[in-house]
């Protein structure tokens, strides 16, 4: 074997590359992914620390409506005279929270359905996939609007609604991965060493199915932020919580006269979605060696 083995006797995993470690290194060496990560980190930091640092409540009326960007409120005011920058900072909290939480809901429901269907096959697969197809055939935006109308315009309702309408593609992805992996030799070997179904699903197959699911989850964050924007734009957002979508929705009538009222929240959404997309793509490249250029 290799002559240059590490000689430490401590058993420390020295010089041993784990698949996850290799992927992380590749991800960080990719300027596109790093750029996306920087955008996201800046946005999250601004949303978390910004409101305290800036010190203006996004729902307070600070001056005349439609003040253009300039010196006092640096990004101007909206149709009620509220500070746009305060809205961006505080709205970022809601938009990003909705994005990440709905993506999490998407992944949890999707992986639950997909893994059980793919692992057990047969009647379970048929039943679970019929349910998935039922949800998939509903027009997502319309279905989310119905849910919000039924259960109230509340941020929690919006988040759950986005998660509920978005999970079917993740379920199909997870199912495909489980179908592929369950027949592989190492799964058979684990079965032959006495592993129970729950153990096989959770500890043997899922870690191997994780890469594409993580990529799709990352992309789902961006989609969910857009979705929240769309719902709020249509006037179905939570009116008591500032979000980027709400800013767009409430100011959309004045977009032609006061561009700054919609331009800045629109740009914030654009950046957040761009950031998650770049990170997702870079993840995909790092995890899937066959797609790598070199």
């Amino acid at each position: 074997m290799s002559a240059s083995l590490p000689t430490t006797q401590t058993g420390a995993p020295q010089g041993v590359a784990s698949p996850a470690g290799t992927a992380l290194r590749l991800f960080l060496s990719n300027p596109i992914g790093l750029g996306g990560l920087i955008i996201l980190v800046v946005l999250v930091f601004a949303a978390l620390a910004g409101p305290q640092l800036y010190g203006v409540d996004s729902l307070d009326i600070v001056g005349m409506p439609f003040q253009p960007p300039g010196d006092d409120p640096i990004l101007g005011t909206d149709y009620l005279g509220r500070d746009i920058l305060a809205g961006l900072l505080q709205g970022g909290r809601a938009s990003l929270a909705v994005g990440f939480t709905s993506a999490l809901i998407t992944v949890v429901i999707g992986v639950a359905f997909g893994s059980l269907a793919g692992f057990f096959g047969g009647a379970a697969d048929t039943l679970l996939m019929k349910i998935t197809e039922f949800f998939q055939t509903l027009p997502t935006l319309l279905f989310a609007m119905v849910l919000v109308t039924l259960f109230g315009q509340h941020l929690v309702v919006t988040t759950i609604a986005i998660g509920i309408v978005s999970w079917p593609p993740t379920a199909r992805l997870a199912r495909a991965e489980f179908l592929r992996l369950r027949g592989l030799e190492f799964v058979k070997a684990a079965r032959a060493s006495g592993a129970a179904p729950a153990y096989l699903i959770w500890r043997v197959i899922l870690p191997n199915a994780a890469p594409p699911i993580v990529v799709s989850a990352t992309l789902a964050v961006g989609t969910a932020i857009l979705f929240e924007g769309a719902l709020s734009f249509l006037g179905l957002g939570d009116p008591n919580v500032m979000s980027w979508g709400l800013m767009l929705g409430q100011n959309r009538a004045y977009a032609l006269d006061a561009w700054w009222t919609v331009m800045f929240p629109g740009a914030a959404i654009f950046l957040a979605v761009l950031g998650t997309s770049l990170v997702g793509d870079a993840f995909n490249d790092a995890i899937n060696p066959r797609l790598r250029k070199r």
């Binding site: 995993p13 041993v16 784990s18 698949p19 996850a20 592989l184 030799e185 190492f186 058979k188 070997a189 684990a190 079965r191 032959a192 060493s193 006495g194 592993a195 129970a196 043997v204 870690p207 191997n208």
Partner: peptide, 28 residues
Amino acid sequence: PARLRALRGNAMSMIFQEPMTALNPVFT
């Protein structure tokens, strides 16, 4: 089934043909 699982890997175990694919790639 539960007793069978307790026997597998414990009282009886099996080696497969393909060592290249019979180990889980994501664990040490």
